[in-house]
Amino acid sequence: MKNKFAVQVDDLTVAYNYKPVLWDIDLAVPEGVLMAIVGPNGAGKSTLIKSVLGIIKPIAGSVAIYGKPYNKQRKLVAYVPQKGSVDWDFPTTAIDVVMMGTYGSLGWIKRPGQKEKKAALEALEKVGMLAFKNRQISQLSGGQQQRVFLARALVQNASIYFMDEPFQGVDATTEIAIINILKELRKAGKTLVVVHHDLQTVPEYFDWVTFLNVKKIATGPVKEIFNDDNLTKTYGINYKVAINK
């Protein structure tokens, strides 16, 4: 029965130094959902994604992608890191960054060719950045940089997408463009796990949600579990949020 879940996390515990960042997380992400991970700063949202992707080594616990360990299922998974995690003054162009998404399937040493370039151009077009393909990345706006990162993940042509705050620091136009792409991906049967900060938009954007604050508070359909009770448990006492229904 395990294989019904796109991502399955069991007893995951992660600590930097002494303090645990994630404590005994059990989480199952059903296939085809668009899931938000919400929680306060320091709740371990990014850490959770990074542990699933093998960037951070957990102290205990296991992760399965469609029932198998991550390193056997890499090609099914794409990752959009936080925009601030890289130096945008790096000497390269937008299309070059997008092309990096093909490196995984190319493997060691082999260089990207025409096929990879075509895929990169298509991805740039999907995120509306084709006109900027040869632009030096430092000359892109924050929203454009975020779109380039998204295009790089699209090129990976994965089944599961992990995104770390894709809406951070982008304007309304870009936010709408990005959420439309995410919704399209879900329609195509992909699974999306998104670290998200804006509680107001959770019901509108997502159909699945996980509340996280070092421990997992709750996970399930937005309609059933996105309520004051869980928000209060996650963010502290008396947290109220207006949910636009």
Binding site: K50, L53, G54, I55, N71, R74, V77, Y79, P81, S85, V86, D87, F90, T92, V97, M100, Y103, G104, L106, G107, W108, I109, K110, R111, P112
Partner: peptide
Amino acid sequence: LLFWKEFKILLFDEDYTKTLGF
């Protein structure tokens, strides 16, 4: 020249490089 692609992606985005299996 041999590891050009690998050097480049590591310089730009180390975490991402890890997730690709390098």
